[in-house]
Amino acid sequence: MNKLLVVVDMQKDFIDGALGTPQAQAIVPGVLEKIRHYHKAGDDIVFTMDTHTQDYLDTQEGRKLPVPHCIKGTAGFELTGELAPYASVVFEKPAFGSLTLAEYASGGEYDQIELIGLCTDICVISNALLLKSYLPESRIMVDSGCCAGVTPESHENALEAMRMCQIEIL
């Protein structure tokens, strides 16, 4: 069985930086454990990184969320230290979901794709739905214990929305 782990936006600004939360900080050990498990099994692991430029506040997202974050070249853009050594395949994305990730996954003949990371209610759900659309017969899963949302309530709402779209919630 071909398995893929997608680690979504585990960047410093989402963990303990500009948009960090205690919930995001709390999932880091579990995310690292999950990555190590996939790595040891020889399964594929890819990372996404929210990627903005200095003109972020002039973008549509910046006008709706006027908190500069994940600006390429800043410390907040970087993956949190413990995870960085595993990031050999990285998809930088200027928006919530990555079409490049979905195209990559569709070329890999993956039977199972698991997503973990941040934020459940924005980028995790966006990428899970894209993957489900590109690969309707693949088993798409989200580990709820290795994800955190903007708020605990929006995390739960996103999990329920993904369940309704036939994404398996672990």
Rank of each mutant, 00 (worst) to 15 (best):
L4P: 01
L5V: 05
V6R: 01
V7D: 10
V7N: 03
V8R: 01
V8M: 07
V8A: 07
D9V: 06
K12I: 15
K12V: 14
I15P: 02
I15A: 07
D16R: 00
D16Q: 06
G17V: 02
L19G: 10
G20L: 11
G20H: 05
T21P: 08
P22N: 13
I27Q: 13
I27T: 11
P29D: 14
V31I: 14
L32W: 06
L32R: 13
E33M: 12
K34P: 12
R36E: 15
G42S: 11
D44N: 14
V46E: 14
D50F: 06
D50W: 04
D50N: 07
T51P: 09
T53V: 07
D55F: 00
D58T: 00
T59A: 01
Q60Y: 08
E61A: 01
G62P: 05
K64W: 08
K64F: 05
K64L: 13
L65D: 12
H69R: 07
G73H: 00
T74L: 04
F77A: 08
G81H: 05
E82H: 00
A87R: 03
S88E: 15
S88C: 10
V89S: 10
V89W: 03
V90P: 04
E92K: 07
P94I: 11
A95T: 15
A95R: 15
F96L: 14
L99M: 14
L101F: 02
A102S: 14
A102I: 05
E103Q: 15
E103M: 08
Y104Q: 11
A105L: 08
S106A: 13
E109A: 12
Y110C: 04
Q112E: 14
I113G: 09
E114D: 09
L115H: 05
L115A: 08
I116K: 09
G117Q: 11
T120Q: 05
D121H: 03
C123E: 09
I125Y: 00
N127I: 00
N127Y: 03
A128Q: 01
L130V: 00
L131K: 06
L131D: 08
S133F: 01
L135C: 09
L135D: 10
R139M: 05
R139H: 11
I140V: 03
M141C: 07
V142M: 00
C146F: 08
G149W: 08
V150S: 09
T151C: 06
P152V: 08
P152G: 11
S154G: 04
S154F: 09
N157C: 10
N157L: 12
N157P: 02
M162Q: 03
M162H: 03
Q166W: 06
I167V: 15
L170D: 13
